[in-house]
Design a protein around this nucleic acid. Structure first.
Lengths: 196, 196
DNA sequence: GGGTTCATGTAATCGGTTACATGATTCG
DNA sequence: CGAATCATGTAACCGATTACATGAACCC
């Protein structure tokens, strides 16, 4: 399984492994727990399937960055609870030292608008309407979280850790708001339906 | 080469092939030209390496969605100029009918802020400063394009195709502005450097 | 002479998705 | 009785990145 290459690449570019280490730094968890957290909080800026999670946990274990103990829980199926090893913590700290790369943007909707321009056929409006609804729904969700978890506007009083997590939520809010603004701009200058 | 599966999947999820068809709908081009356009205009919302482009062009040719003629140009190396076939145009139109999927977000910077929160070590500020500079540079670039290519504020007078392309640029501007706003918010509430 | 541009690709590897597989428990 | 939740994985495939490879022309 080419452990050497894996260990070396605990540094370089890609980062599902670092995301998992990050989740384990917060608290020990099973593969199932981690997958669920990808569907919830962290899922707003990183996604991974359970298959990816289990595979990565196996590699991290082999590399000595995490360890697990099997916990039997009476009725429920047994689970493996993973936690950071000291080397895992070191690897995570080393990753923090390196500059974060810019997120890759791949947006089908914008490509489609280009395609409609090139073909002089097709109607982008339904897609924009759909996207507007999706972003509006997310914005509501984030604003609810903001209201329920953080007393708005009193950042200064929070511990560092909470301030950092709050900022990730703020990013979600600003991003969704920017999408809504764009959708409205687009809808206001696209006719209801061109010939096609 | 499992052409059947490929042909069927001209419909389903992923879309490098549709992006390339989109570029060819605008005008015929070589693999090299297409790669360059990924580095320029279209690159703001879709990226692909030259290796990906050449491989996809080979598959699209085999599937009959594009065709090429080899053009020798005296001094320079010969090139293959690709163009849409009627089936290619059909495939692109069919793709336009299907709803666009939401872009996947994977942002290392936000993961890092979560990691700093969990470890109580490390400093996110340098990364935020770096990101702010990158987004500011892009915003300048986009605003220059806006000034040079579109008379600001007179969307109504443009042909449909230009209005659509202008909207993709507007999206870039709104997105970069939102990032700048967030970076400023983050910097204003993070201390210069926590202990770590 | 050395770097950039034009122009094309192959090979190896890694990241991510889809489909398949199992098995118990709890809720409606 | 059927669906959802808890909990773990394997296998096949597709998408994307990195490294390697070639070769001519043009510019400094």
């Amino acid at each position: 399984m080419q452990l050497d290459a894996y260990q070396i690449s605990v540094c370089p570019p890609m980062s599902l492994r670092h995301v998992i280490l990050t989740l384990l730094a917060e608290q020990p968890a099973s593969g199932y727990d981690i997958t669920k957290r990808f569907d919830a909080s962290l899922g707003y800026f990183w996604q991974a399937s359970h298959q990816q999670v289990y595979r990565e946990l196996a590699r991290l274990t082999e590399a000595g960055l995490v360890s697990f103990e099997t916990v039997t829980q009476g009725e429920r199926p047994a689970k493996k609870v993973y936690r950071l090893t000291p080397q895992g913590r070191e690897a995570l700290l080393a990753w923090l030292e390196r500059p974060a790369s810019l997120p890759v943007i791949k947006d089908e909707l914008l490509v489609k608008m280009w395609a409609v321009a090139g073909l002089a056929a097709g109607d982008p409006v339904p897609d924009v309407v759909r996207r507007r609804a999706e972003h509006a729904a997310r914005l509501v969700e984030y604003r609810d979280l903001e209201r329920d978890c953080f007393a708005a506007g009193c950042l200064a009083g929070l511990p560092e850790a909470d301030r950092l997590r709050y900022l990730t939520l703020r990013r979600g809010i600003l991003a969704e708001q920017a999408w809504l603004d764009w959708c409205d701009e687009a809808l206001s200058c696209l006719p209801a339906a061109p010939p096609g």
